[in-house]
Structures are given as structure tokens and as C-alpha cells.
Design a binder for these strands. Structure first.
Lengths: 234, 234
DNA sequence: CGTGGTTCAGTGGACTAGCCAATAGGACAC
DNA sequence: GTGTCCTATTGGCTAGTCCACTGAACCACG
């Protein structure tokens, strides 16, 4: 769910072929255990493997080059210059205790995001945040866990921060965050508590108080952390 | 390093055609007074105007699309979705290198890293931090900018945090951080100030005081930020 | 012995020509 | 008016071809 950027709805996004190809390349590279510095197969060969023309593959490589994932060297080959998203997840999964790390990282990123959001939020941002809150509330009232609304809320806050770099890092760890979210919201009483936490965060953002927003987000993640550690720990 | 005597080799930067084309498009769009929402000429026509093939033009458009400058709509046309600030071509080469964003992100990640380091640092970690400080000090005393030592220091703090995920994210933004580091340390008096900031951070980590370490790191990055913004402002 | 040039295989860079697919807008039937 | 269909225009993608660059092996010369 590459989403933190747009609270906007489904919007039939026509996926261009090169996007899919770029995605396939990164996942394939991750699964193949390719690391920084390794070479991708030659374009002609790779194009055949992926079942696309060389021109399309070239577009995909341009996209990956612009994003800084690969470096295409004329006459030499194409090399990975940055670990791909999937490889990050893979690397982390190799570690036994990943949940605490995920929460630490969320704490680092999201407190900053909340503070920035309090400073920069537009009316549209606030509307998206409110909508996410409403969605979560409705779900929780109906006995649900509010997973969707929770996710949307954090995505809306990310969007409201208007920081492309931080947003990208959130996308990077998104799959890991999903895990922790599910674990947390699956506990009795947690959805309501989480909703309350969100309300405090939203209030601080609406009020334009960066410090309060950061503190509220920190508390919120700390709450998730506590319970998760209890479950996991002893 | 083939020739220590010469300061700078010719540096033949091989520019791909699509990069030049992308640049031409943005500058042309700016000069033509095109604003957000306006349509670019059809690909076939534009390709002729620019004197390149449609395939190459397509690559350029992919690059601009990835960066978020244009939106290519099948069957309709290509529209501008973000004002082109002339320097956008540069932005493509440097990925998403917006200095303020980089510093925001560093602030988010590194304050947390410093706090964790204060809690978890081992003797080896402290030794590495001290070594980096010593290296930077020696370089600065000798009139250098201490770039190497600066980098090592932050790497040592990152290692001392013992958080693989945060470390990975630091790796992600490493190339961007390098830019900001160079810009900052190139200013008169900055290396010394930076060294002092490092000392405060190190002291807090040695003392095992997470809050103080985070605060010191925050101040340190804030200092870099101030100067950088001054530079940018003019 | 080594320095420097040459060759060659492999690789990406770019172009041309062509067909497919989506869109918008007008023509038409109702 | 209203809805449907048609069509010109536009981008999407492919195939085939040639060119330029890289690196390594090779060889000739000093």
C-alpha cells in the first residue's frame, strides 16, 4: 500500500508497464539476494525474462535510476546502488527481535511527522485526518478493530507533514508497520485506546502545536510499544 | 587516485540524452509561461521539435513523471502538475535532494539514534565514537574540514544505537546526507563548531543520558540547518 | 619487462517504423 | 435534450537495427 501521499480515494490509477517492471526488478533483486554493487542481467536478457521489450525495460531502469536504486553504466552494465525495499524487510526479518526496532523507528519518524504536520497542515490535510478518524470511530463502534482507519490516519498525518523524504521512508517500512499494527489492534480494548490517542494527536495538529503533536504521537506509539513488549517479552 | 598532484580530474560527466531532454522540456515550459494544468505538445510533435526519437522523449517523460513534474495520460496528453523551477533538472540528478527535507529527516532519525546510543552503547561503541572525534579534531587542527571524521562520528553513533532498522534508513539517505554535510562543513568556522557539537553529543552518550543526547543531537542538526537555510535564502 | 596500442566481445544508447489502446469530442439517431 | 457511436488524436508498447562505450585479452615496440 504505497499510500501515505494521497488520502484521495481509489482513483483508477492506470499502471504503466514500466512501473510494474520496475517493481518486478526490485522484488526479484531482493529475492535473489542481490546486494549493493551487484550487477543486473544484461538488458536484452532481462527484457526476455520479464517478457517486455527492451524499450520498456529501459523506461523502468530510467525510473529506478531517477529514484536512485540502480546506476546504468554505458558499456558496462546496470548495478544496484541502494538496497531495495524488499531487501530491507528481508534483512530485518532475519533478526529475531524486530518488533521493538519497528516501534523505535516509528517513534523516530512519526513524532517528527506529527510536529511537521502541526506546522504545515492545509485544510485538505485536516479534512483527510478527520475523515480517517471518523472511519476508525465508525469501525470501532461497530465492533471492528479499526485497522483501515488507523492506517489512513497515519497516512494522512504523513501527507500533512509535506516532507517527501520522510514519506518515502515511511513507505519503506510500511510492510513492517502493518505487522505491528495488526498485533496491537488485535488486543481487547486496544482499538478504543488507539482511537483516543489519535484524537489527541489530531487535536494538537489542528491547534498547530508541534510540541504537543510530537508528544501525543510519542505517547501513542509508546502505548503500542508497552503492550507489544508485554506480549512478546516474558 | 592516479595523480595526487592535480586537484581535480576533468570529470567527464556522461549525461544521458533523456536527462538533457527532460531539462529542455522544463526550461522550455518555464519560458513559454506554461503553468500547472497546461498541456505539453503531443509526443510525436515534441520529439521532432527537440530533435530526438519518441522513445527517448518517452524516457524523459518517465523521469519527469517519477519526479512528479508531469502526468502522462494515455489518450489525452501530458500535463504539467508541478511548477518547474528551472533547477528541476538538477533535482533529477540529485534525486529528491531538498536540503530542508534532508535535515528534517536527519533530525527525526538521529535524535532517536543518539538517545538509543546513550542507553545501549558498549565499550567498543564508545571507543569508535572517541576515535571519530579524535580523527575529526586532528583534521580540523590541520586546517581541514573534518568531513571524514564527521561522517565516522555519525556512523559510530548509528552503530551504537544497535537498531538495524534505523541504521538501514540512515543508509538510505546517506548520499543525501553527504551533500548536506559538505555544504555545511565548507563554511568558515563550521568545522570547529561542528566538533564542539559532537563533543556534547558524545559526552551525553558516555554519561548514558538519553534525553541529553537527543537534545544535543537536535541542537547540532539545528545548527547545520540554520546555516544551510541562510545560504539558500539569499 | 613493461608500456602502450589494438582488437574484440559484451553492454547500454538511441533511432525508426509500426501497430495497439485509451481518450475526447463531434455526429447522429432517438 | 439525451444517449450512442464513430473517429481523429494521443500515448503505450514492440521489434529490429545500428552506434558508442567498456573492459579485458592480446600483441608489438622500446
Amino acid at each position: 500500500m504505497p499510500d501515505p501521499g494521497r488520502p484521495l480515494p481509489p482513483k483508477v490509477t492506470r499502471t504503466r508497464l514500466y512501473e510494474q517492471v520496475a517493481e518486478q526488478i526490485t522484488t526479484w533483486a531482493a529475492q535473489s539476494g542481490l546486494t549493493v554493487g551487484d550487477r543486473l542481467p544484461p538488458e536484452r536478457e532481462l527484457a526476455v525474462q520479464l517478457g517486455v521489450s527492451r524499450a520498456t525495460l529501459s523506461q523502468a531502469l530510467v525510473a529506478l535510476e531517477v529514484v536512485g536504486v540502480v546506476a546504468v553504466r554505458h558499456g558496462d552494465g546496470t548495478v544496484l546502488v541502494r538496497p531495495t525495499t524488499a531487501s530491507i524487510g528481508q534483512a530485518i526479518r532475519a533478526h529475531a527481535s524486530r518488533l521493538p526496532e519497528i516501534l523505535e523507528t516509528r517513534d523516530a519518524l512519526e513524532t517528527k511527522l506529527a510536529a511537521l504536520a502541526a506546522e504545515r497542515r492545509t485544510d485538505d490535510d485536516l479534512a483527510a485526518i478527520e475523515a480517517a478518524l471518523a472511519e476508525m470511530e465508525a469501525d470501532v463502534e461497530a465492533g471492528g478493530r479499526g485497522v483501515e482507519g488507523d492506517q489512513r490516519f497515519h497516512a494522512a498525518v504523513t501527507a500533512a507533514s509535506h516532507s517527501a523524504l520522510l514519506a518515502r521512508l515511511m513507505v519503506e517500512i510500511a510492510p513492517l508497520v502493518t505487522e505491528s499494527r495488526l498485533e496491537s489492534l488485535s488486543q481487547p480494548g486496544r482499538p478504543r485506546a488507539s482511537l483516543a490517542g489519535h484524537r489527541r494527536i489530531a487535536a494538537a495538529i489542528v491547534a498547530g502545536d508541534p510540541a504537543a503533536a510530537a508528544a501525543a504521537m510519542h505517547d501513542h506509539i509508546g502505548m503500542v510499544s508497552d503492550v507489544a513488549l508485554l506480549r512478546e517479552g516474558q
